[in-house]
Design a protein around this nucleic acid. Structure first.
Lengths: 253, 253
DNA sequence: CTTGTGATATTGTCAGGACATGGCGCGGAA
DNA sequence: TTCCGCGCCATGTCCTGACAATATCACAAG
């Protein structure tokens, strides 16, 4: 068994930038992740211990520790006290991130499209008021869109937003994702709580998604919060299950 | 506007145990979470600043910071530099955790049941070998179970494990969840990567779940890793969508 | 041969300090 | 009145240092 070696590709960490705005721990974790994803550090490999790494890089142990922790939280590394840190086996999966479907598609090289089905101001019923944190009867923006990728329908998205977003135009929504539009207005989504389920298509969804009546769809109900903890958006979407699925990584504490 | 106050229920943190095995940051984050969940610290409230909290509790700032970070990562708190830390609005949701369905049901007061449908040793085909990290043709354990809650079928679970788990008995699996059985053998699941989708029921699943042919089911494909990063289990499950759904919380970095 | 014991390696926890960075409000200037 | 700049405040980053807890291994004892 010749696997006593500890891996640490020193050369990848030669030119850390101490003056720039990018935190040191982030520079280390980024390059370490790249080394793992590329296979430069193979699955199952043991990393050098934290103290050695710190002295090699000229950093303190907490900084190195934080960089490693970042990847532990994302399921790429596993730590065991008294043993060391190892790379997790198994191919990497891209997890669900806090970006809209629009950006997801863009980043994977596909051509996203949007058809606005409804864009109006309505009054909140009890259910919507509870989710959005407004009073029953308050004006809110209702938005219903059909999302396509490379011309093929993927999802039907229905969203509700507080009235302060009533001036968003349909044109804006046709060329970008909802979260991009909100970010351009200075509203950054920080937290989203969502429930994923399944059901049959309902009403006009089968036509909009291009599937037969009675076919299953993957559903998501989501509440999104901005960086001050306020509710910014509530929506329920349905996806063609043959075109989309959710990938997550769970890490036990 | 009388919301200039900062909340910090001092009395909840009076008796921190410095001698016991429970880390201080964990004691703080646990009680802080309880205070938020119970409403003692209301949604939108601002916490006192970290330095004051640290001096109040007689702890260092890094310790307090770590406790707060714990809740930020779980979407209960939001931090803004220069501003402070606030409680996120919106009702709390119990997220998907790294526990099996069996434990999920137990903890919510329901009565889980298991029917073993298949329990055998098979040889890995190419697909299974790839997921489990074994060679094609190697012996692996195949397990198929029907899961019920209060007598109602909820899911059909099919799992594959390495041959070293061939001595697990059906009796063990009928009285506990798979992850509980593995933990009793000293194998702790630390990481799971899963893909959530939807499809129609297939084959005998409709009978096992008590739903009509053609009905939708929620599907999960999961690979689980132990604390040394090795693959321990691969499985694909399907759930009755009217009985089960997944809740997750996403936090932007 | 088995068991226990101690040494060693490595991560886990905690302290205390220093400086950087970004919001926000206030006061002064245009 | 409006706008700009300055200072305060709270979190963000990073450092040094120390001790605790746990897994592994070698080695001695039964």
């Amino acid at each position: 068994m010749a696997d006593d070696r500890t891996y640490w590709p020193d050369e990848l960490f030669a030119d850390l930038d101490r003056t720039g705005p990018v935190p040191l721990y982030f520079q280390v974790s980024s390059r370490l992740e790249a080394a793992i994803q590329s296979g430069a550090i193979p699955p199952g490999a043991r990393l050098e211990n934290e103290i050695s790494i710190a002295s090699r890089l000229g950093l303190s142990r907490p900084t190195v520790r934080r960089a490693i922790q970042e990847l532990v939280d994302r399921g790429l590394l596993v730590r065991r006290r008294g043993i060391g840190t190892q790379v997790v086996q198994g191919q990497v999966t891209r997890p669900v991130e806090l970006s809209s479907l629009f950006e997801d598609l863009q980043s994977t090289g596909h051509e996203p499209g949007t058809v606005i089905l409804a864009h109006e101001v309505v009054r909140a019923d009890e259910n919507l008021a509870g989710h959005l944190g407004v009073a029953v009867g308050d004006e809110i923006v209702r938005l219903r869109r059909q999302r396509t990728t490379d011309g093929v329908p993927v999802a039907v998205l229905e969203n509700f937003l507080p009235a302060e977003f009533a001036d968003i135009t349909s044109g804006q929504l046709e060329s970008a994702g909802l979260y991009q539009v909100l970010r351009a207005r200075g509203v950054a989504i920080r937290i989203a709580k969502q429930k994923i389920g399944a059901r049959r298509v309902q009403g006009d969804e089968s036509d909009l998604l291009g599937i037969d009546r009675g076919h299953p769809v993957l559903t998501v109900e989501r509440v999104a919060f901005d960086n001050s903890g306020r509710v910014v958006e509530f929506g329920h979407h349905c996806y063609r299950p043959d075109m989309y699925s959710f990938e997550t990584t769970l890490v036990a504490k």
